Amino acid sequence: MKGSYWRLILILIFQLHLQAALCDTEFDNVCNSVPKPQPPARQYDFIYFVQQWQLSVCNLRSCLKPARQVFSIHGLWPASYSRKTQCNCGSEFVPKKISDLVDKLNVEWPSMIHEDNTLYWKNEWESHGICSEAVLPQRAYFDAALKLKQKYSLVNILAQKDIYASGNVYSKGSITDAIKTATGHSPQIQCNLYKEIPLLTQIFLCLDYNATKIIECPPSKRCQYEDLMIPYSLFNT
């Protein structure tokens, strides 16, 4: 009996050593047959940080809130160079996740056409933010937009090149050059026509996929006019 017992022990020890040896070879998949969970694939190449000139917005459509001479946040939009960015799933907007940011968001990211800013933020998150959720979860997404707004003050950037909301007309090229001088990269400029007057409405800055570094924006056709006005008041209707 003693001999059989020790033979069994030796066989078990041999099998354990054999299994360990296999795990150190190309047969490693034998020891790890259950696949490890993978992080969600990133579905975009870069991110637009979009700021809108409130007075242009409110000259072009009815606003429920007084427009100021400021750029406010419109959104942080994941985008792709060669395809339309589509995000069909993601977490729903949860207001309590950004409760500590609400005061700043009310100032820097207000809705001009809705009374409830929360509905605006919900729409931006569920339309755009969920695309970047693997990199920027909900709170990080809104916090990133606030930090970008503080870092890239377009009013100050344009003022450095004597571009103001003064009723004067400026070339689209001069606006682009002012931003490129300050950031090192070209933005995209959006304009809309109001009674034959091209108004600067939005400026798009482009950032890397995690919204930490500004990059060159791809060419765009958001504005077909060469001379633009930055309105300093609401026009008479």
Rank of each mutant, 00 (worst) to 15 (best):
L16G: 15
I215C: 01
Y44S: 05
S4Q: 03
A21N: 06
L154Q: 13
C31P: 12
F235K: 12
D162P: 00
Q19T: 08
Y232S: 12
S91R: 13
I98C: 14
P78K: 02
L228E: 15
G129F: 04
C131N: 13
G184K: 06
V57F: 00
L205S: 15
A79W: 02
D116F: 02
V34W: 00
C87G: 02
K104R: 13
D100A: 07
I203H: 10
T237W: 01
A134L: 11
D116G: 03
T201P: 09
D103Y: 03
D143E: 13
C191D: 12
M1W: 04
W6I: 09
S233Q: 14
K180R: 06
Q188G: 07
G3M: 10
L154M: 15
G129R: 04
S132M: 00
A182Q: 12
A178P: 06
D24C: 13
V169K: 03
E108R: 11
L136C: 02
E196F: 12
Q202R: 15
N29S: 01
Q224C: 01
P110L: 10
V94T: 02
V135D: 12
Q160V: 01
K213Y: 07
K96T: 14
S153Q: 12
Q43T: 02
L207A: 12
T212D: 15
D177C: 00
Q160F: 04
N236V: 08
D28M: 02
F46G: 03
Y209P: 11
L60F: 09
P187Y: 14
C131Y: 11
K147D: 14
I163D: 03
P37I: 14
E133P: 02
S99I: 13
I130Q: 06
L16F: 13
I230K: 05
Y164C: 05
P39V: 04
N236A: 09
K2Y: 02
L12H: 10
D162N: 06
L101N: 12
L60T: 07
N192H: 09
W53Y: 06
G173A: 10
I214H: 09
Y141H: 12
K96W: 14
E216Y: 00
L146H: 08
V102Q: 15
Q138A: 01
G167D: 13
W121D: 08
A21D: 08
Q202N: 14
L60H: 11
